[in-house]
Every structure is written in structure tokens, then in C-alpha cells.
Amino acid sequence: MTGEAVVLGLRTAKLPSRALAVVLDLAVEFAAFFIVTVLLLTLLEGLDGAAAAALMICMMVFFLVAVPVTVETLTHGRSLGKMALGLRVVRLDGGPARFRHALVRGLVGIIEIILLTGVPAAITSLVNSDGRRLGDIFAGTIVVRERVPAGRSTGPVVAPPPQVMAALGTDLVRLDLSSVPEGLWLAIRQLLGRADQLDAEVAFRMAHQLAGDVAMRTQWPVPAGLHPALYLGAVLTERQRREWQRAAAAAPYAQPMAPSPYAPPVPVPVPSPFAPPMPQFAPPAAPVRYLGVPPQAPAPSAPVPQAPVQSAPVPQAPVQPAPVPPAPVQPPPVVPVQVTPPPVLPVRAAEPQDAPPATAPVADGGFALPG
């Protein structure tokens, strides 16, 4: 949504609420200025008139310029009076006010509110349609209402009823929504989401402008008699339907389908009271993760320098000469030895004392037994 459109969609603060907030702020500032100045003059009794006047001027600048500027910068456009009435200072594009905006508002406010008793600020706020005073015009800011009273919603109904969707269904299906940029879709969602907080005229003007942009890009004009907000709601609903259809078509391939809530419950086995107790095993320790604290990845350990590995010297065996096969042993030659038989000595028979009788010789040269 464009910058000015955002601001116009908010409820701007008018003169009565702004004047009351300024009165509360000035009352607190002057009270603090008076108390601090009296204390300083009491403690510093020896000051002359010039020094006392200079001190009062410094205190006035501090409490009427420095303090309001600092408070609006730190609170993003909210002073004590604005907090009490639910007001806030924002830029024309809807963003929070910064230091330079608060400084310009404070310097101009000294002239138009304090020195000129607020007459230029009141006249400018009455003439301006957004209730802006001179400080807001020079700083490029606007004061809006943050708290919207209940029961004052006069915005149009933005949710398209089924009758409208049924009447526009054929034309919505044929629309080419690819030419509508994301920024325009965001503006439509913001408008439809804040319809209850907008004035009827402001909401109609913004819806008419956005509907014209959508009709120009989709080549489908707003049907006669249809509120622009309903037209935008119908187009946005059609876009969401197409996105849901594409997501549903891609879901079965991306992740398993969740079980149906209407499926019958799975029976849970109930252990028998007579069954022996089962041993209990402690589950493995799981990493504990605290909500809101992202899981911490283990810190990489520093590489430990490793000393180069020196290989031990391998002792080399002494080189043994190749064994020489022994020469075959030749048996000694066999020398024939002539053996001489020993001489046979004649044996002389002993003569018995009583010789037996002689026997006759046997014809074949043997001996005959004595008979």
C-alpha cells in the first residue's frame, strides 16, 4: 500500500484531543522546570542576575525542547499526554517518527504553541483536513489515534457472501491473476483486514482505487452495482482458492498424508495382571531443547597438530652366500685281498691204556661197530 494511503486509512486526531494532550504535556514540563529551577537557585545563592537568567534560559530549553524531543524519539511518537489519550505521531507513509521529525516538531512548537500561545497551531489544525499543525507540516508527520472506540465500525462488509461468489464464479475462474503484483495483493489484504477500523468514505475511496488497479491488470471491470470492497474480496478469495488447490495437488508428493480423523481407533493391548513384569529399560538420553532457544550445534574441535610419524628402520638380514652343494663321495676302490687259510696241524691221537680190539675194515672205507 502506498504511503499516503496508509495514513489516510488511519483515524487522524482532531483539534480537541490534540489540544488536551498538549495541555497535559506542558503542565508536566512547566512543573518540572519550576521545581528544578527553584532548587538550583536555592543551592546557588551567590549567582548574580545575569547568571541566574542564563540558568533559567538553559533550563527552559532543556525542559521544553530537549525533553519532549527525547521522549518522542524513544517512544516512537508518544509523549505523556498522547499516551493518556491514545495518540501517536507517525510519518506520512505510516512509519514511526524519528529524531529529525521530533526535533522539527519541537522547534516549531516553541514558536507556534509557547511564544504565540498556540493560536497558529489551532488555526492550522482547524483548516487542515487531517488536523495537522505547522510543526507536522514542516516535519512531514501526522498525529493518529491508536485506540478506536468500540461500536463505531462503519466500514463496509468485505467478506463476499456466497450469492456474490456464485454470481461471479464463471468470470472469476477465467481471470488471469498472474499480472497482479505482490504489492497490490498486500495492499488488498491490509485494506480488507482493517475495514472495521476505517471510516466509510475513506474505505470506499481506497477500495475504489485498488479495484481500478486490479481491473486494469486483469481486464475484468468491476460489475455495476457491486461495492469495490466486495469485488476485491471475491478476487482475493479466488486467488487463495487457486493457491490451496496447487498446494493440495503437491501435498501427496511432498509428505505422507495424515491419518483421517474418522478412521476407527486402533485397539491398545491391555497387559494381563497375571503376566510377569517386563524388564524396564531406560530410554536413551535424548538432547534437551528449550523453547525459544535454537539448538546449538557442537563446537568444532580445534585440529590437533600431529607429529610426523617416523617409520622405524627395518633391520636388513645379512646376505648369505648361496650354499654350494657338496661333491658326491666316491666309494674307495675295492682291492681284492687273498686270504691264506691257516695251516692244518696234524692231531695226534692219544693212545688209550686199554686198547680195544681191532675191527675189520669196512669195504666202503667206513668204520664198523664193534661186535
Rank of each mutant, 00 (worst) to 15 (best):
L175D: 01
A200R: 14
V108W: 02
G106P: 03
M165V: 07
D213W: 04
M206I: 15
Q163Y: 06
P96Y: 00
V143Q: 08
A215T: 09
I137W: 09
R133E: 07
R145Y: 00
A195Y: 00
G151V: 07
G95I: 02
V144Q: 01
G212P: 10
P120F: 13
L92I: 05
R152S: 05
G140Q: 08
R132Y: 01
S153V: 07
P161H: 07
A195K: 02
L184D: 06
L175I: 15
G155W: 09
D213V: 00
S153D: 14
V119P: 04
A159C: 03
P96R: 01
L172S: 05
L172N: 08
L175F: 02
S178K: 13
I142D: 02
Q209K: 14
R205G: 10
Q209E: 13
L126D: 00
T124I: 07
A200Q: 12
V108C: 12
Q163T: 13
V158F: 11
L126I: 01
A159R: 14
E112F: 03
E182T: 15
A167K: 10
G95H: 08
L172V: 08
I111S: 11
P162T: 00
Q209T: 13
I114S: 06
I114N: 12
V108E: 01
L115F: 06
I114C: 06
P161V: 08
L210I: 11
V164Q: 09
L107F: 11
W185K: 10
M165N: 05
F138G: 00
V202K: 14
P156H: 10
R98D: 12
V158S: 13
L192P: 06
R133A: 07
G193Y: 01
T124D: 02
F138P: 06
V144P: 02
R147A: 05
V143S: 11
D199G: 14
R189K: 10
G135L: 01
A215E: 08
G135H: 04
L210E: 10
R194E: 08
V143W: 05
S179D: 08
R194G: 08
T117P: 00
D199Y: 08
L103W: 01
L192E: 04
S129W: 04
L115P: 01
V143M: 09
R133I: 07
D130F: 10
G95D: 09
V104M: 07
L191R: 02
M206F: 04
P120I: 10
V104F: 03
I188D: 03
L198V: 00
